[in-house]
Every structure is written in structure tokens, then in C-alpha cells.
């Protein structure tokens, strides 16, 4: 025991004398998605890498494998000690991440958020791809349009606790009350981000609610899952499927006419714009109070308060889905 301790002390002093340093002049941008395995963020990543190449900065893209608020905090704290220049976060939990982000700002690291915002005092700008309000309204309006303004619908979400999912549901409910009182939400079911589970849930929903007109899937794996269930139940056209997802995962169902609409902002652009904004902020080119922001090859974007607006969410359907490959 003693001997190994002495040896380890010796090794320790040896190692410290071999101090490692790798000064790097490139700006270091760190991007934190909610979950890096999610197709949505994978396509964000492609856009952010393009921006990093254009701008000649170094990009870190690291996030939890599953959506995990505590893990996000740990990653931010890792980055603080690493000394990155700017952090861009898609917050899994608004309040939770803000603690770590405030700490980062105290250390002189610039912070922007994208996809899902943190508390306003924990970041400089929010790259707003579509506000929860925008998403909620787009989903609810589309649902009402497909159902002719009345009928039963159900929601399949990722987990009951995920922050953005709750926010979207609130906005969906608000829009329903305001504009589409004829629509009735009969159930909200979680699928744990599993396509297979979403399929089972959708099957149960259809048999339990014979008058169900539409399934709204608000996490990306749930859209193809619900579509497969509708197809297998032979209810194509009778039960509509809409949701938030990616073109490639839903192409076949959209073309078959099972899934009517997939709603999405252009995720690659979101990644691109986020990195552009982050770098401009770190270089001091983007300051509070600006009203427009020019983002490389994408051109100019409007800034409203401290929100950089990417634009309205995009509706993929049978007619335009082939124009997109991600």
C-alpha cells in the first residue's frame, strides 16, 4: 500500500513536469444539442459544420445521448473549464441549464441559445427557429384544417417531463381554445423517443377512441411510428398523422398519403445561423440592440429584442418533400 502510494507520488510529479500545452488561435465554438442522437440535431450539426468551415473556427458538438438536463449542465461545466470562447445551447430545461450558463458568462464566455431558450439573463441571444408559440399554432392550425375544424385528436410526445414538449403542448392547447374549440384533445401519451413504442401507443389510441380523427406526434421518432400504426390499422385517411419530424424519416409515409404534414424549420439553416451568430457575438460584431444580422450565405435575418428569427416553421407535404434530403 505504502509502496504504491510512493510510486504514484513519483509518477505524479513526473507527469506535472511534462505540462501539456497546445495553444490554439482558432476561435472555439461549442454547440450543445438536447440529444445528439436525434435526427433533428444531427441535421443541425451538418449546418453548423458548414458555418464553422466558412468562418474558419473550431467546432465542438457534444450533447447527451438521451435528453438529459443534468448531463447538459455537466457538459457546459466541462466547457467552462476547457475555456471555450462561445457556447450555443439548446436547453433541455430552461431553469436548470441557466445556472451553468450564468457561470459561463461570469467566466467571460459568450452564450447564445438555439432551438429552446434558457432564462433571458443567462444568454445574450436566442436563435429562434420558431417560437413554441409558432410551432403550437402551426401544428394546431394544420390539425384543424385537416379535420375540418372539429373532431378528436391525440398527442404522442417524447416523455412527460421534457421541457420543450410541455411548452409546445401548452401552446397547442392555447391555440385550440382560442381558434379551434371544435377540436377535442382526448389523450397525451409518451413514447420515450422510441418509434416502436409510438406505434403501439398509436394502435391503442385508435382502438380506444373510435372517433379519433388525427394523431399529432410532437417528437421526431413518433411521427413514423404513428404513421405505421395508422397504416397497419387500415385507417389511412380516416386518422390523419401530422407531427414534428424530418423529411427522410417520413418520406415514404408522406408519399403514401398516411402522414399528411410534417412540420419543421429547416434544421440545417438553424445550425448554420446559430454558429454564425455565436461567432459574430464572440468577435464583438453582434451587439445587443441590433435589428438585423447577416449570416454568411443565408443572408439577412431579423432580430426582435434578443431573438434572432429564423422564420416560420416549414410545412413538408406530398408536394414539396422531395426537394429536401435530410
Amino acid at each position: 500500500m505504502t509502496r504504491s502510494f510512493v510510486v504514484s507520488c513519483l509518477l505524479l510529479s513526473l507527469a506535472s513536469s511534462l505540462g501539456w500545452s497546445a495553444p490554439d488561435s482558432k476561435l472555439l465554438v461549442a454547440l450543445l444539442p438536447k440529444s445528439k442522437g436525434n435526427a433533428y440535431f444531427i441535421s443541425c450539426k451538418a449546418g453548423s459544420e458548414r458555418a464553422a468551415r466558412d468562418l474558419g473556427v473550431e467546432l465542438l458538438f457534444e450533447g447527451p445521448v438521451d435528453s438529459n438536463a443534468a448531463k447538459q449542465n455537466e457538459i457546459v461545466e466541462n466547457w467552462i473549464t476547457l475555456g471555450v470562447d462561445v457556447i450555443a445551447v439548446a436547453a433541455e430545461n430552461r431553469e436548470g441549464i441557466s445556472t451553468a450558463l450564468r457561470k459561463a458568462r461570469r467566466e467571460g464566455i459568450k452564450v447564445v441559445t438555439f432551438d429552446a431558450d434558457a432564462m433571458p439573463d443567462a444568454r445574450s441571444f436566442f436563435v429562434n427557429q420558431a417560437t413554441p408559440q409558432g410551432i403550437g399554432e402551426a401544428l394546431m392550425d394544420e390539425a384543424a384544417r385537416l379535420c375540418g375544424g372539429e373532431g378528436e385528436f391525440a398527442i404522442i410526445c417524447a416523455t412527460l417531463t421534457a421541457g420543450n414538449q410541455r411548452e409546445w403542448q401548452r401552446e397547442i392547447e392555447r391555440r385550440r381554445q382560442e381558434r379551434h374549440p371544435g377540436m377535442k384533445l382526448v389523450a397525451v401519451r409518451p413514447c420515450d423517443d422510441l418509434k416502436d413504442r409510438a406505434q403501439s401507443e398509436a394502435t391503442a389510441l385508435m382502438s380506444a377512441h373510435p372517433k379519433l380523427r388525427l394523431i399529432m406526434a410532437i417528437c421526431s421518432p413518433a411521427v413514423p411510428g404513428a404513421a405505421e400504426a395508422v397504416k397497419q390499422a387500415g385507417k389511412k385517411g380516416a386518422v390523419r398523422v401530422i407531427g414534428l419530424g424530418l423529411p427522410n424519416e417520413n418520406r415514404r409515409y408522406v408519399k403514401e398519403g398516411v402522414t399528411d404534414t410534417v412540420i419543421l424549420w429547416k434544421t440545417e439553416d438553424l445550425g448554420y445561423l446559430t454558429v454564425q451568430a455565436a461567432v459574430a457575438l464572440a468577435k464583438g460584431e453582434l451587439k445587443a440592440g441590433a435589428s438585423t444580422f447577416k449570416a454568411g450565405s443565408l443572408g439577412e435575418f431579423r432580430i426582435e429584442g434578443d431573438n434572432i428569427l429564423l422564420g416560420k416553421p416549414f410545412l413538408f407535404n406530398r408536394d414539396n418533400i422531395d426537394q429536401f434530403d435530410f
Binding site: 420515450d192 422510441l194 418509434k195 416502436d196 421518432p221 413514423p224 411510428g225 405505421e228 424519416e249 415514404r252
Partner: peptide, 16 residues
């Protein structure tokens, strides 16, 4: 038995 039930495989399948 699971793969043949849908036209896509999600790598997360079977977790849990």
C-alpha cells in the same frame, strides 16, 4: 420479429 413489423429500424429500438 420486430424488424419485419415496420419498414424502418431505429437504433434506439429495444432500449429498456
Amino acid at each position: 420479429m420486430n424488424v419485419v413489423q415496420s419498414p424502418q429500424v431505429q437504433p434506439l429500438t429495444g432500449s429498456g
